[in-house]
Each structure stands twice: as C-alpha cells, then as structure tokens.
Design a protein around this nucleic acid. Sequence first.
RNA 1: GCCGAUGUAGCUCAGUUGGUCAGAGCAGCUGAUUUGUAAUCUGCAGGUCGGGGGUUCGAAUCCCUUCAUCGGCUCCA
Length: 646
Amino acid sequence: MIKITFPDGSAREYKKGISSLEIAEQISPRLAKEVYAATVNSEIWDLTRPINNDATLKLHKWEDDAAKHAFWHSSAHLMAEALESLYPGMKFGIGPAIENGFYYDVDPGDGKVITEADLQTIENRMKELAAKNLSFNRRDVSKNEALGIFSKKGDEYKTELISELQDGTITLYTQGNFTDLCKGPHLPSTEPLKAIKLLSVAGAYWRGNEKRKMLTRIYGITFPKQKLLDDYLVFLEEAKRRDHRRIGKELELFTFSPKVGMGLPLWLPKGSDIRQNLITFLTGILRKRGYKIVTTPHIGNVNLYKISGHFEKYGADSFQPISTPQEGEQFMLKPMNCPHHCEIYNATPHSYKDLPYRMAEFGTVYRYEQSGELHGLTRVRSFTQDDAHHFCRQDQLREEFKSIIDLILYVFKILNFNDFTAQVSLRDPDNKQKYIGSDENWERAERDIIEAAAEKKLETTIVTGEAAFYGPKLDFMVKDAIGRKWQLGTIQVDYNLPERFDLTYNGSDNQKHRPVMIHRTIFGSMERFVAVLIENTAGKFPLWLAPEKAVILPISEKFNVYAGKVLEILNNSDICTLIDDRSEKIGKKIRDSELKKIPYLLIVGEKEVESETIAVRKQGEGDVGSMKIEEFVSFINSEIKKEIAL
RNA sequence: GCCGAUGUAGCUCAGUUGGUCAGAGCAGCUGAUUUGUAAUCUGCAGGUCGGGGGUUCGAAUCCCUUCAUCGGCUCCA
C-alpha cells in the first residue's frame, strides 16, 4: 500500500501502482470526468500514470493551468495525427501548448503549402479522430530506439531533438496511429477534446533561428465544451473591436500613410491632444520630483555613436547616416537620447553633493524595424520616449531605483493600469564576458534592483541572461486586447556610457569619480502607451485625457444662438467643447456623440434657454439632470482634479 | 527580412466558374422637416476595383511584378 496526501492535508492509503485517475474515480465518478492532469510530488503527470510510492497528489480540473496545458498539448498531438493522415510524409517540428491553445510546427515538404483554407479539413479530421476516443499511451524508450523510430520515418527535426536529449529521459506518446516524442503529460484519451478550432497558420523558423528552414505553424484551441469555445471566439471578436488600430481610425486619433512611409505615425488633432495631455501631466510630476527637462536635436554626429558604442553594435541595422553636402559630415537619426544626455551632463561640472542629477526629455527617436515587425502604434520606426537619465553615485543607486519604481507605480495608479507585470533581467552568470562592468558593480546593482523592488512591494519575475550588455534592468509589461505582451516602462542601470563619455563628478575627497547612469521610461513611448491606453479604455478615455470634453446638442435650430453662447463660455473656461447644430433630431445627435465617446452631452432646448441651464447627459450612462453653465464648469474641473490627484 | 493571407467609394462590405458588375449601407453634400435623451425623409455626388505589366475579342475576376496592410517568425540599444 502507498500513502497519498491530498492538498487539504488529508491522506489515504491505496494499492501500489494506482493511477490518479483511479483515485479520482474512487472519490467521485463525476470528479474523474472533470480532471485532466495531476500533480504528483510537484511534478505534473498523466492521470493514467501509475503511482508506486507515497506521494502528495493534486488533481487538476479545467480551471488549473496544468489541466489546460495537458488538454492543449494533447490537442496538438491530435492535430499532428490528423495532419499525418491528410498529408503523408509531413515532417514534424515541435507542438507545444501555449497560453491560449496550442500550435504545431510542421514541414509539409518542398513545394507544398498549407493555408488557412485547409484548416477546416484538418479540423474535421481532428474531430473524427477525437471521436474515436483514442487513448494516449506513454512509453519510456532508449535514445537509440527513439532515433531509430524517427529516422525510419524520416522525421529529421525529431531526430535532431532526440540527439540532444539525455539517454534514459526519453518518452514517447502514442494515440491511434501517431507517435510523438514528448515529455507529456497528456489526457488519458482524446475523448474530452470536443470543441476544436484551428485559428491561423503562420511561418516560424525551425528552432527560432532565422538561418534555418521556415516551418509552417498551425495555431488552434480546444475546449471540453462547445460553449467554452463559443465564448472564447466571442472574446476574440470583442478584442478585435478594442484594437487600437481600429479605434484610432474610428475616433480619428492617428493614421499612417504609405507616402510618408511605413511605421511613421501621423497624429491627428484628437490623438495629438491626448498625447499632449499625457505629456503635460507627466511633466508636472517630473518637475515636482526634481527632474530637469532638456531638449536635444533629432540627429547626432556618427562619431557620437562611435563613442557610445552603438554604431559598432547596431550601426548596420539602423537608418543609415545622412551626409552634409559640403563638409562631408555624417549624422544619424538618433536611435536613443542617452548620448546626447551624456554630453549635457558633461557641459557642466558636478559635485557629489549635486547628485543624483535627473534629466528628462520627451525625445523622439528613429529606429529601423524590419518591415514585417511593424504593428500599429505599438511597433513603429519613429516614436517619442518619455525618457530620463539619472546620474548618481553608486551608493545612491538603490534609492534612485526606489524613487523610479515609486514614480512608475504612481503614474500607473492614476491611469488605472493595474494589469501589468514586472520583470527583473539579470546577467547570465555563466557568460560574464558578454557584459561590461566589474563583477562587484553588477552584483551590487542586481541586488539593489531586487531589494528596491521588494521594498516597494513590487511583484517581479526574475530572468537571468536577459540583462542589457551594459547593466541589469527592470521592465514593466502590459498585455494588449488579445494578450500580446508589450514592454512599457523600463529602468536600466548602465556602467557603459559613463565610461565611454568619461562622465565624472568631484567627490568629497576632491577626486574625480565615475557616476552610475540609470535609463528610465514610464510610458515607454508615447505611441505604445497611447495604444495600450486605447485598448484598455476601448476609446472611452478618462475625462482629463479626452480631447473633447463636451458637445452641445440644441434640440432644434431655434436654440442654436443659445447653444453658441454656452459654447463660448465653456471654451473660454478651457473646457474643449463642440456644437452639433445640424438639423437632425435630438436622438440622432445623441447617438452620434455617444459613438464618438465624447464624455458629456449638453442638451439645450426651450426649458434650458428660459432657465439659462444645460441638460447634462454623461456618455454611456445617461441623463444626469440640469445645471447652470457655471455649475457645469466647476463640476468638470473638479472631476478632472479628482482623476489626476492622488 | 522570412512564411501565409488580404487590398473594390472617406468607413464597413457585396460582386458565383473572366462577358451591362462597377454595387449597398454609413459618412458627405442638397432640399424638406424644427424635432426633448442612441438612427426623420428626399435627391445628388464619390471608385482608372492598391500601382505597373501581361494573357484574352473581353479582366475587379487569371498570371507576373511592385507597394501597403493583417496573422505569425526572427529582431527590438
């Protein structure tokens, strides 16, 4: 007998070799139907795998990621089986479960392509196969046996993977006629794979290496119930409606023109207003926190980037230098503001007493991005960073870090950005030659970042090997409407540029010392931030950010004169207001303004003229009653104050 | 840059296998209406069907090429 301990601490005895599925059945047949995987001693297992020793056991229902993972991984195998039966000779790469669903990378063979038009056929075959209720069988094999099986099939991708695995750790899973190299875990059978949808096909380099062959990646998702799939598809549709590219067009916020060039955003008046509101807001906060605002040109001499090291590292992949017609000088569009800022630092002498020195700029930079990588406002070739550089002493590093974390959290809070993650990127300790700076400084900086984040109660994930070559960093990431991750704010320690630009300060010992430099952004870039803001709010911006605060809707043209008077008062009170004096019915005017997401609709008719009031309707919420014009002005001002005060 | 898809009026989209197929709704402009909380009615105007080339008696439709966009991959100082 073996002892199985459950998550609640209770324990029961079972006969040796029992599977978690059998245990679930003994608890309740219903439970057995709802579990998809099990954690046995902190390892995730197939439900059917026999347990031979005392163990802790947690059964995973659909709600658990482990269950979804097994479910989708099994789905990937099912898809592979369908593909193999439809396309004999197809070769298989890898087919993992992902955050939402699964994919499989396949090589259909030279000259053959799979397009979205083929997905329905594949999907249908998957459904046929799933209905056969095929069981997934796990088998341990030796490296030689595995190599034999897959080289016989001609699956060169699999044999490549196997050749890198340790003998004795290799397992295969078989369902029906399909066998795959796989760690598992899997479902007991294909039976629960009831609702299946293949979503898209895309190219993906084998092993993520652009020098190697491009395979065809097929994405799909499955659910145990059709209802869940339907809900998911509805969610995807809704997400598309929140897409910033779509809302940006509908609300006339920004546009792109092939004539201007791809990836070069053109901000329309309303989008510009939002952007400017953010800049004004942030500038106010920065000044209170001791930042000095600077301004630098959009180009810099090539030599500047040779000094900084950027030219050597990124020069070939940048917009190429522009030359002066007579002097033969070469300039680059600035890809970042830091070298310019270093020279601003160098323009004046610095004492240890004056540090930290905080320098900020809304600096527009230009980066060459591959054409296929451009994406709305989130990935562009020209963007404005809310950039800043802190020059400080090594002993001030942690406090500076804390102050920046504090600032970012403060700004995110005001903007109602709750759904972000923070990642600490450290250097790869096994590959130290990739980085510049002393071991001592790195260790200290990494410790400072981690501890500063902890002191600020910021939850972080720590990733080694992701640091920049010049220092460790802390990044803030958010997801867009359909779950793609984008980096916004970042805080990066830099030991490189202070060396290269020979930045110094006078210490209390009257000796020259080297300051540490911190790069930081809060929004990341105005472009990306506005994009994320659009998707978060679905275009319904908070009042303080809204480009237009109110629109006056006269009941009929008879009241246009009064409406004009109201308009003048509001605009003179710095409340950006429009008027809709078309000869349309009030219902139509309300509808149009609601769709434009203007925060307040002010209806004026006979009653309002007589009492010198306006009937206020809040966007999305309805009538909120009448008020005097001055009352509305102070109401709006206090609402805005509430929004941006903390 | 790579793989795949898409590209028809300002916007959203119809246009079977090449043969009155250049259309609709919204937006715009007209005129009528003068309206009380999410769509009043009338009429008009708008496109060399992304650009270029080709096949054909004939191309929005087929082929080539180019530009742009979308979904991914690689990249992201």
